[in-house]
């Protein structure tokens, strides 16, 4: 079984991103970039399926400019077999990413596609579901467990009240939640080996997709700042403040 795993280059999760002073966009100058944490979990899950003998090949795909090859190499160092970059410029909306991934799926014909549930820049949480609609595949979103069972995959999903398990007919799409697995660190020898693994580059045109834009970012602004309050001396003072000043308990 071939597994396709999508990875995105995003601002490192430790960076506190700010709006530019003129409100035109976020300020990403000299900011550390990394693989989106949910995508890293997706790569790990695919590699584990291969190590378990369930998957035969793991292909890592990223949509973006040349810099995203770095994140594809990260996926290769973690154990993916080869990479595909779809070369785009600037921000690409989830719907277009889904169309491009559909194009890759038509070439590669994977049985399982694993993506992160959301990227920590746009916080959209859309691409996997959109890809499901476009390809007609079923989806197991926000996965905390993935079990291949013949021509089906059972996915346990993190939902509002707890957990839900669904059975999906392969080929299927899975989007990862945080507790699906704990990604490994790439070893130095594997990082070196990753540099030699094949990486193909396609344009959207190669995949028959036109890059369009449905949304315009008009402006960005910082959120309403919360002022730090006071430190109370003890529990008595805390209760007094909550009762008599904030009036949130009686």
């Amino acid at each position: 079984m071939k597994v396709l795993v999508a990875v995105k280059r995003v601002v490192d999760y430790n960076v506190k991103v700010r709006a530019k002073a003129d409100g035109s966009d976020v300020d990403l100058n000299n900011v550390k970039m990394a693989i989106n944490p949910f995508c890293e979990i997706a790569v790990e899950e695919a590699v584990r399926l291969k190590e378990a003998g369930t998957a035969t090949e793991v292909v890592a795909v990223s949509i973006g400019d040349k810099a995203c090859q770095e994140q594809i190499r990260t996926a290769l160092a973690l154990g993916a077999d080869r990479g595909i970059q779809v070369e785009t410029e600037g921000a690409v909306e989830p719907l277009v990413v889904a169309k491009l991934l559909k194009g890759v799926i038509e070439k590669e014909e994977p049985q399982l596609v694993i993506l992160g549930k959301q990227s920590i820049d746009g916080d959209n949480n859309q691409t996997g579901q959109m890809l499901g609609a476009l390809t007609g595949m079923p989806q197991g979103t926000f996965a905390s467990e993935v079990v291949i069972d013949g021509d089906k995959v059972n996915v346990t999903r993190e939902v509002d009240g707890g957990l839900q398990t669904v059975a999906l007919t392969l080929p299927a799409i899975v989007t990862t939640d945080l507790r699906l697995n704990e990604p490994r660190y790439a070893s130095l020898p594997n990082i070196m080996k990753a540099k030699k693994k094949p990486l193909d580059v396609f344009t959207p045109g190669d995949l028959g997709v036109e890059v369009t834009s449905h949304l315009t970012q008009v402006s960005v602004e910082p959120p309403a700042e919360r002022q730090a309050g006071i430190k109370v001396e003890d529990v008595d003072q805390l209760i007094d403040k909550l009762k008599n000043e904030a009036k949130v308990i009686s």
Binding site: E93, P94, L95, A98, D123, N124, N125, Q126, T127, G128, Q129, M130, L131, G132, A133, L134, Q139, T141, F142, R157, E158, V159, D160, H214, L215
Partner: peptide
């Protein structure tokens, strides 16, 4: 933006070939 809608709505948007505006 519940777990159900997060699961379903992007699929709706793609079927209609429009963007979703999340949250």
């Amino acid at each position: 933006a519940t777990a159900n809608a997060k699961n379903t709505m992007p699929r709706v948007a793609a079927l209609l070939d429009v963007a979703q505006i999340s949250e």
